[in-house]
Amino acid sequence: MSSLILDLLLVIALLWSALRSLMTQDLFQAVVLFIVFGLLMALVWARLHAPDIALAEAAIGAGLTGALLLDTVGYLRKKQQESFP
């Protein structure tokens, strides 16, 4: 029973973070929500008995891609400040 509740919560949180990440206007918020989505996805893979994919998702999907996207947001902000001081 408790595992069913955990699964349901995970599914709701996953869908919510995916939707919010796509719908939000703020790029920084979208990236943070994308990282949250990746970490939740890793938990879902672990629940589905696929620990290998969970490890890869957490390390590459959430970690490295998140770092790259955050770097991009910082770069874009700097560009924006230079053109509209």
Binding site: P51, D52, A54, L55, A56, A59, I60, G63, L64, A67
Partner: peptide
Amino acid sequence: PGGAFQAGAVLAA
């Protein structure tokens, strides 16, 4: 579970 891809990703991080 583990292997080269995951280990490489941790090194990259």
